[in-house]
């Protein structure tokens, strides 16, 4: 598997650390349900996913990878810092 880091270009998957689904951190007062969902509940989609990877042995950027679990396509990869803004 190869991931196209927006900074480094296309790189081997072994340079990356996988975190999981790219989610938005709830506000401190968002309530138990929101926090429970953020921490523990995950979809398992057959199709498009958005997930966080860390280019650990590369440039050190956190990236949001769009990946299709059915077709193996990776249509997108953007910097998490920009996606978060």
């Amino acid at each position: 598997m190869r991931i196209s880091c927006p900074i480094c270009g296309e790189r081997d998957r072994r340079e990356f650390h996988y975190r999981g689904a790219a989610l938005t951190r709830p506000a401190p007062d968002a309530g138990e349900a929101a926090w429970d969902a953020y921490l523990h509940l995950r979809d398992n989609p057959a199709g498009a996913t958005r997930e966080l990877w860390y280019h650990e042995t590369g440039c050190g950027a956190w990236v949001v990878v769009t990946r299709n679990t059915l077709t193996h396509e990776m249509p997108g990869c953007e910097l998490a810092a920009e996606a978060a803004r």
Partner: peptide, 11 residues
């Protein structure tokens, strides 16, 4: 230049 890994070492 590139940041990558060499035999599992950050390089």
């Amino acid at each position: 230049t590139a940041r990558s890994e060499l035999a599992q070492m950050m390089a």
